[in-house]
């Protein structure tokens, strides 16, 4: 077993994410229980940001290593990829949708955590995302399959913190209903307990991310914008005002 001085990047990120999620959920409750949850979450967030390994401290990491189990959920070790899929039908021709998707510079409109995508050449691009706390995450990606107006697939290149591959399929929907779009994302959990924790976190959220991306694609294509209530008037939210 290799010695570790602190938390690895994957574990740090997991801690930050969990902390932020708990803190937010806690604040939203707006009651004493919520305050407790929020406090705990805030602590985790700080621990993550400071690089303190909670797994080492609690000994859960060592226990997990001995039992060959995941430190967080004590699940059996599984190095199998995590696969998520989302489907949507959009009232637009496949060509329109394919072109939108193929221009990766459009992707920050679909994935809110993406800051920008830099196109290098026809097949290669660099993706820049912001994690909670503003930490920059970047990875490179390569297109490995392309059938015009029908299918696009890609994978991340060496060095990605969360290696993954993805594909998007455009099929004509029956009866003039437009185009059926299927987005598949396959994540390869990085090694180590912390890495698996990241994968687990993404295991809960990529599905939402995939679904949300397709929903945004649909709304942007069909109506030109995303519906919003940001900035509309409301009365006093009471205690909730602090967190919106």
């Amino acid at each position: 077993m290799s010695a570790r001085a602190g938390a690895g990047p994957a574990e740090r990120y997991a801690t930050i994410l969990t902390g932020a999620a708990l803190a937010f959920a806690g604040l939203r409750r707006g009651d004493p229980v919520g305050a407790l949850v929020a406090t705990a979450g805030g602590g985790l967030f700080l621990a993550g940001a400071a690089g303190v390994s909670l797994l080492e401290r609690t000994g859960a990491g060592a226990l997990a290593a001995n039992l060959g189990q995941d430190a967080v959920g004590l699940l059996p070790v599984a190095d199998e990829p995590v696969k998520v899929q989302a489907n949507v039908t959009i009232l637009a021709p496949a060509q329109t949708l394919f072109r939108f998707w193929r221009n990766f510079a459009n992707h920050p409109k679909l994935f809110p955590h993406l800051e920008r995508v830099e196109i290098e050449d026809a097949r290669h691009s660099t993706w820049i995302a912001r994690g909670p706390g503003g930490a920059e995450i970047r990875w490179r990606s390569e297109v490995d399959g392309e059938h015009e107006d029908a299918l696009l697939s890609w994978h991340t290149l060496e060095g990605a913190e969360l290696p993954h591959r993805g594909s998007v399929l455009f099929l004509p929907a029956p009866g003039e209903r437009g185009t059926q779009v299927r987005l598949t994302l396959i994540y390869h959990p990085p090694g180590g307990a912390g890495g698996r924790a990241v994968a687990r976190l993404f295991g809960a959220s990529p599905e939402r991310q995939a679904g949300e991306a397709l929903r945004r694609l649909k709304r942007l294509t069909e109506t030109g914008s995303l519906p919003t209530i940001e900035g509309q008037p409301h009365g006093s939210r009471g205690l909730r005002e602090l967190v919106g």
């Binding site: 039908t89 009232l91 209903r177 437009g178 649909k218 709304r219 069909e222 109506t223 995303l226 519906p227 919003t228 209530i229």
Partner: peptide, 19 residues
Amino acid sequence: GECWHCRHDQWSLCDNSNP
């Protein structure tokens, strides 16, 4: 007004208007 449901006069089933 643009989704399949709105185009078929099923306005309360609109796919897009709920943020």
